[in-house]
């Protein structure tokens, strides 16, 4: 199972470090990562492999949301099917 993590908000030091720290701790592998900064809005999308995850999907989701709140950015974890179904026939 793959997931998509998106981060939106003001750019600051340590966003990627905080997110990847959680992923390392829960045994989630990063398959692809890209980021852009447009008008000081930081946007990052990350595709991750959840097949060897050590916690429940909902736990990881909560952890990411919490770290997002601490950093003042919006962090979302979604299963990839919503993107494949919407953008691929």
């Amino acid at each position: 199972m793959k997931g998509v993590i998106t981060v939106l908000g003001c750019d600051k030091v340590g966003i990627i470090a905080s997110i990847t720290g959680i992923l390392a701790g829960t045994n989630v592998n990063i398959l692809d990562i890209s980021q852009t900064i447009m008008q000081n809005i930081f946007s990052m999308t990350m595709i991750v492999d959840l097949s060897k995850i050590k916690v429940e999907f909902s736990d990881l989701s909560e952890q990411l949301k919490k770290v997002g709140e601490e950093l003042g950015v919006e962090v979302r974890l979604q299963r990839e099917e919503i993107f494949t179904s919407m953008h691929r026939i």
Partner: peptide
């Protein structure tokens, strides 16, 4: 694999 702008389009539809 989808592109970053496709991911952001979906997020924008839901959030905005």
């Amino acid at each position: 694999m989808f592109k970053g702008n496709e991911i952001l389009e979906t997020i924008h539809m839901i959030a905005q």
